Amino acid sequence: MRPIPISLSDAAVILTLNSPGFAASYPRVLNKELIPQPILQAMEWAWSTPHFPERPVRVARLSDVWVAKEGLVFDRDGNLYRETITQHSEGEIDQAHAAVLAAMEQEGKQHEPDHGGPVLLCKKRGVGNYGHWLMEMLPKAQLVQSHLPDLGLRFLVASVPDRLNDSMASSLSMLGIDLTRTIVADDTPRHFADLLVVDGLTEHGGYMSPLVLGGADALVKGVASVGAERLFVTRRSMGSRRVVDEDDLAAQAEACGYTVVEPGLLDLPEQIALFKGASRIVGVMGAAMTNIVFAPPGAQVVNLTPAGMPDTFFWFIATLRGLDYTEVRCAQSGPIRGVMPWDTDLILSSNDRDRIFAD
């Protein structure tokens, strides 16, 4: 049986913030003709929006609720708060619902929910991606802690692989959050007496509030730039979405004065230090390019992008940060090496190889 969707009630809202409106410009897209029409149409409406109006961001406080999977929240009757559905498939929702109902039945009257104090939900779809953490989950922690500092919050975060776990822990610590106040959870249902949920901060693919920049700005403050003005961001160790003959491309980048970096192999302060002073950044679209949020306004960003990848995430970051943003759409080659159909090798023409490094 599918869960009944319900909405956060006005009575549950304990804080409402105004997310400012902002202007947006259509991105500079090279080789746009390579983008399949269905993929282009999925992005076109956002790219073509000249102004995103102001909107509210709400913090709601819920009692006696369950959290399952990647941040799905159910009430005591097994109804699902629709605001916590973030790119979850119907199958994932059904699995979470069944797991919650089973946990409720098993718990019965013998166990009580977590009564350790209010917990802020910092889990959503995409928990294993550094970019989603940095721009969609961490900002919730920064925002609520800064506006409601006296609540004595704990923070519910996802259980993730070691390298991402280190980045998450480092970012929380840099915000002044005691890591003993974090609750690390997998997909298993968890029962909470007091849970805070942030609504309206982001809609992946469709909206990103200027308020998300507060988290990145707080991280940047305590880190000094290493002085690298030009960066070439590689994905050599990722195994997917790499440029054909990338070693030659990296050598060309170095010859043009670029520092070749693979952010995923660095700790978070090192990544921030690299991007903080960069005036020109070239790289393959992926989580590591989220670090452009640490770059100064006006920095030039060139994102090498699979032709069939539907993505507005980095365009939103560039728009909010005031970056000069270009996408170079690349033909895809060879087998799928990752999870998605755009996780293939990329072909960059000789003409594109020259112009991405041109001043």
Score class of each variant (00 low, 15 high):
Pro53Leu: 10
Glu54Met: 11
Glu54Tyr: 10
Pro56Glu: 06
Pro56Ala: 02
Val57Leu: 01
Val57Cys: 00
Val57Glu: 01
Arg58Asp: 12
Ala60Phe: 09
Ala60Trp: 06
Ala60Leu: 09
Arg61Gln: 15
Leu62Phe: 06
Leu62Tyr: 01
Leu62Gln: 02
Leu62Thr: 01
Leu62His: 04
Ser63Lys: 14
Ser63Asn: 14
Asp64Tyr: 06
Asp64Arg: 12
Asp64His: 12
Val65Glu: 02
Trp66Tyr: 15
Trp66Thr: 03
Val67Tyr: 01
Val67Ser: 01
Ala68Pro: 10
Lys69Thr: 07
Lys69Ile: 02
Lys69Met: 14
Lys69Arg: 15
Glu70Cys: 08
Gly71His: 08
Gly71Asn: 08
Gly71Asp: 08
Val73Leu: 09
Val73Thr: 05
Asp75Trp: 09
Asp77Ala: 13
Asp77Val: 06
Asp77Cys: 12
Gly78Pro: 04
Gly78Ser: 07
Gly78Glu: 09
Gly78Thr: 06
Asn79Ile: 00
Asn79Cys: 13
Leu80Met: 12
Tyr81Asn: 03
Arg82Gln: 14
Arg82Lys: 13
Glu83Asn: 02
Gln87Cys: 14
Gln87Thr: 14
His88Arg: 05
His88Gln: 15
His88Glu: 11
Ser89Asn: 06
Ser89Gln: 08
Ser89Phe: 03
Ser89Lys: 06
Glu90Val: 14
Glu92Pro: 01
Gln95Tyr: 01
Gln95Arg: 13
Gln95Ile: 07
Ala96Asp: 00
Ala96Cys: 07
Ala96Trp: 00
Ala96Tyr: 00
Ala96Ser: 10
His97Val: 03
His97Asn: 08
Leu101Met: 14
Leu101Glu: 08
Leu101Ile: 15
Met104Trp: 08
Glu105Cys: 10
Gln106Trp: 06
Gln106Leu: 12
Glu107Asn: 13
Glu107Gln: 14
Glu107Ala: 15
Gly108Ile: 11
Gly108Cys: 09
Lys109Arg: 13
Gln110Cys: 14
Gln110Phe: 14
Gln110Leu: 15
Gln110Asn: 15
His111Ser: 11
His111Asp: 07
His111Met: 10
His111Gln: 12
Glu112Thr: 13
Glu112Met: 12
Pro113Ala: 02
Asp114Ala: 09
Asp114Ile: 00
Asp114Ser: 05
Asp114Lys: 01
His115Thr: 07
Gly116Val: 02
Gly117Pro: 00
Val119Phe: 06
Val119His: 04
Leu120Asn: 02
Leu120Cys: 10
Leu120Asp: 03
Leu121Gln: 00
